[in-house]
Structures are given as C-alpha cells and as structure tokens.
Amino acid sequence: MTVITYSRYSGTDAAAQLDDFVPAYEEIYVEPPYREGPHDVAEFIEHYAVQARARARSWLVSRTATTSPPVPDGGPTSRTRN
C-alpha cells in the first residue's frame, strides 16, 4: 500500500526542507525542456532561501512511502483467544 503524507512548512522550517528535495529538483529539471545545470540549481537554492524567509511564504511537501497492507482478522499475525 502506498501512503502519501503532506506537510506544510514556513520560515526556517521551510528552509530546513531544502536538502530533502534538491536531489529531486536536480533530476527533474536536467531533462528537456528545462535542461538546467549546476548554475541553475545553485540559483534555485539561493532564491529558495530568500523566499523561505518571506513571512507570507509556505511550502507543501508530499512524501510517499510503501507499507505492508494490514493483515485481516484471522490472518497469520493476528491473535485470537479461545
């Protein structure tokens, strides 16, 4: 089962999230039509830092995780009493 969580960050909390998504940014924006390189990524980081300090800015970050589906009652890991 895939679980998606959403977190909202602002201010210094938003700035602290940068390391989590810069690798994804680099991977996505290197492809056409963007074709961004290291200079563009550095510029994004610089702009992000400025924007994260702006009082009215906030970021919504989504994360996915794969988990095992729940075991139904009576399944191998459920406990029953006789």
Results as ranks from 00 to 15, higher is better:
M1I: 06
T2W: 10
V3A: 08
V3D: 09
I4S: 07
I4V: 13
T5V: 09
T5K: 13
Y6K: 15
Y9P: 01
Y9V: 01
S10R: 09
G11C: 02
D13K: 08
A14Y: 00
A15R: 11
Q17C: 05
L18Y: 03
L18I: 03
L18C: 03
D19G: 08
D19W: 00
D19Q: 05
D20R: 14
F21H: 07
F21C: 00
V22Q: 02
V22G: 02
P23Q: 00
P23C: 02
A24V: 11
A24F: 05
Y25E: 01
Y25N: 00
E26V: 05
E27S: 12
E27Q: 11
E27A: 13
I28R: 06
I28H: 06
I28P: 01
Y29R: 05
V30W: 01
E31W: 04
P32Q: 13
P33A: 05
P33S: 06
P33D: 10
R35H: 10
R35P: 02
R35W: 03
E36S: 02
E36F: 08
P38L: 09
P38G: 08
D40Q: 14
D40E: 15
V41N: 03
A42D: 15
A42I: 05
E43V: 00
E43C: 00
E43T: 08
E43A: 12
E43R: 09
I45D: 04
E46N: 07
E46V: 00
Y48N: 08
A49Q: 15
V50S: 12
Q51F: 14
A52R: 06
A52D: 10
A52K: 05
R53V: 07
R53K: 14
R53E: 15
A54C: 06
R55T: 14
A56T: 12
R57T: 15
S58R: 06
S58N: 09
S58G: 04
W59L: 14
L60T: 13
V61C: 09
R63A: 12
T64C: 03
T64G: 07
A65T: 13
A65I: 09
T66M: 08
T66P: 02
T67N: 02
S68W: 07
P69Q: 11
P69M: 08
P72H: 07
P72Q: 10
P72D: 11
D73Q: 10
D73N: 05
G74H: 06
G75F: 06
G75S: 08
G75N: 08
G75L: 06
P76V: 06
P76D: 12
T77G: 04
T77C: 00
S78V: 10
S78N: 13
T80C: 04
T80Y: 07
T80K: 12
R81I: 11
R81D: 10
N82H: 12
N82Y: 09
N82S: 14
